[in-house]
């Protein structure tokens, strides 16, 4: 009996591994859009892949065909126009990168930075409320959504850039409360919004369910828990989840392995690895 059980366990494990490898191979052959990449230097640590060429090489090794990138300079720099011009230049040199301009609505004349992103032919902007010091019920946040939408720009909202428990206390950036987001979206019809680095623990289930009823999409970079994508899909429609790694701050392999850890069908892999992202940015 024990031998039979061991045989079955071994056989099933081998079958599961073979299936996972087959899925992984399919991912290797398919487009892989990484919606959450950053160029430049993280303020508190040198990263091995903090030059664009090295990062592009790593992403290529890991099968990424397109990477939506903002500059980490956008966290603390005040000359945002220059930050985004450098980003656009770097992305022209390395076409795997799709430039997503950083916007800080707390700066004077921030509206011009959105227009500048459009003039640089960017297709999206990235907001970083924790580092720029505003809440999602701030009128300037809603105005940023409206202006971006008017310029046909998608909006990425980067929520948590570092675990609150490990941050330097002299530059602590509290995770933003996303509870006001559904109301803000009502005030900005047509806005295309993606949440980066969101945690399921950030808001109660009612908020997540409210967001699931909007067109907001989510990346997987900080999705935790075993088989986290499977668990998330129990509460969220498939068309809302996109691949995102938070490289080079995080090891890129973390996001890649999440595709293997959940028991995803070919259709689910297609949606998460590229179809949802393509639809979001092209809408």
């Amino acid at each position: 009996m024990l031998r039979r059980r061991r045989f079955l366990q071994t056989t099933l494990a081998a079958a599961a591994l073979a299936a996972a490898r087959a899925d992984a191979q399919q991912v290797e052959r398919s487009p892989l859009i990484d919606t959450n990449v950053w160029l430049g230097r993280w303020p508190i640590r040198r990263l091995r892949l903090d030059d664009p060429g090295s990062l592009a090489g790593k992403l290529g090794q890991n099968g990424v065909t397109r990477a939506w990138a903002s500059s980490l300079d956008g966290l603390l720099h005040k000359d945002i126009k220059a930050v985004n011009e450098r980003l656009a230049h770097d992305c022209r040199q390395l076409p795997v990168f799709e430039p997503i301009g950083a916007i800080n609505p707390m700066l004077p004349r921030w509206e011009a930075d959105i227009a500048a992103c459009a003039a640089l032919k960017m297709r999206g902007i990235r907001l970083i409320p924790a580092y720029h010091g505003y809440k999602l019920d701030d009128p300037r946040f809603v105005e940023a959504l409206r202006l971006a939408t008017a310029q046909k720009l998608a909006v990425q909202l980067a929520l948590v850039l570092e675990d609150a428990r490990t941050q330097n206390p002299l530059m602590f950036a509290a995770p933003p409360d996303i509870t006001p987001l559904p109301k803000a979206l009502e005030a900005a019809p047509g806005a295309r919004v993606m949440l980066l680095n969101w945690l399921r623990s950030m808001a109660g289930k009612p908020v997540l369910l409210a967001l699931a009823g909007t067109n907001v999409v989510f990346d997987i970079a900080m999705l935790e828990g075993i088989a986290g994508i499977d668990a998330t899909l129990e509460d969220m429609p498939l068309d809302r989840l996109c691949f995102g790694s938070y490289a080079p701050v995080f090891y890129h392999e973390a996001a890649k392995l999440k595709l293997q850890e959940s028991d995803l069908s070919a259709a689910q892999l297609t949606a998460i690895t590229h179809a949802n992202a393509q639809r979001f940015l092209s809408a």
Binding site: E224, I226, Y251, K256, L257
Partner: peptide, 18 residues
């Protein structure tokens, strides 16, 4: 630290290390 953490994010610390 599964199951609160994913296996993936923690395996990546070794698989992805230089």
């Amino acid at each position: 630290d599964a199951s609160g953490r994913s296996f993936s994010s923690q395996l990546a610390k070794v698989h992805g290390a230089d």
